[in-house]
C-alpha cells in the first residue's frame, strides 16, 4: 500500500516524532511504499540542520535523511510553519534576506497543497502528534 505520514510534533519533545520515524521504518520493511512525509507546526523542526542531539540519542534528522536516500521518500516542510521557526532553504533565505539556509537539503519547503495531494493519492494517511 502507499502511505503518507503527517508529523505534527517536534523531535525535541514528546513521542510523536520518534513514533513517525519508527513507523516509517516498519512500514517500509513490511513492503509498503511511503511517498511523502509532511511536517507541520512544530513537526517542521525535524528539518533543522543546526539541531544537535546527544550521542546516546538517535538523531531524528539523520534517520529521516537516511530513509529518504534509501527509499526516495519526499520530506516536505510546511512553508508557513517552517518560516516562522527560522527553518529556511537557500531560496527562502535569499528572499527574506537571511544569512543562509537552516534546513537539511533532504527536506523541501512547500505548501499545504502537497499534503492534500498526498491524501488524494495514498491508501493510508497516518498522523503523529503529541
Amino acid at each position: 500500500m502507499i502511505y503518507s505520514l503527517l508529523v505534527l510534533s517536534s523531535p525535541a519533545s514528546g513521542h510523536g516524532a520518534r513514533h513517525a520515524v519508527q513507523f516509517a521504518r516498519s512500514a517500509l520493511q513490511r513492503g509498503h511504499t511511503i511517498d511523502r512525509v509532511f511536517f507541520l507546526d512544530d513537526g517542521t523542526f525535524a528539518g533543522s540542520a543546526a539541531a544537535v542531539f546527544p550521542q546516546d540519542e538517535a538523531s531524528p534528522l539523520q534517520c529521516w535523511v537516511e530513509l529518504s536516500e534509501r527509499h526516495a521518500l519526499e520530506l516536505i516542510l510546511c512553508v508557513s510553519s517552517a518560516l516562522k521557526r527560522g527553518l529556511l532553504d537557500a531560496g527562502e533565505a535569499q528572499r527574506h534576506e537571511r544569512c543562509g539556509p537552516t534546513i537539511h537539503p533532504a527536506f523541501v519547503i512547500s505548501g499545504l497543497g502537497q499534503l492534500v495531494d498526498a491524501m488524494t493519492h495514498c491508501d493510508r494517511l497516518v498522523t503523529f502528534g503529541g
Binding site: 513507523f23 516498519s26 513490511r30
Partner: peptide
C-alpha cells in the same frame, strides 16, 4: 510492537 501498529493501519 511498531510492526503491529503498521498491521493495524493495514
Amino acid at each position: 510492537d511498531m510492526d503491529g501498529f503498521v498491521a493495524l493501519t493495514e
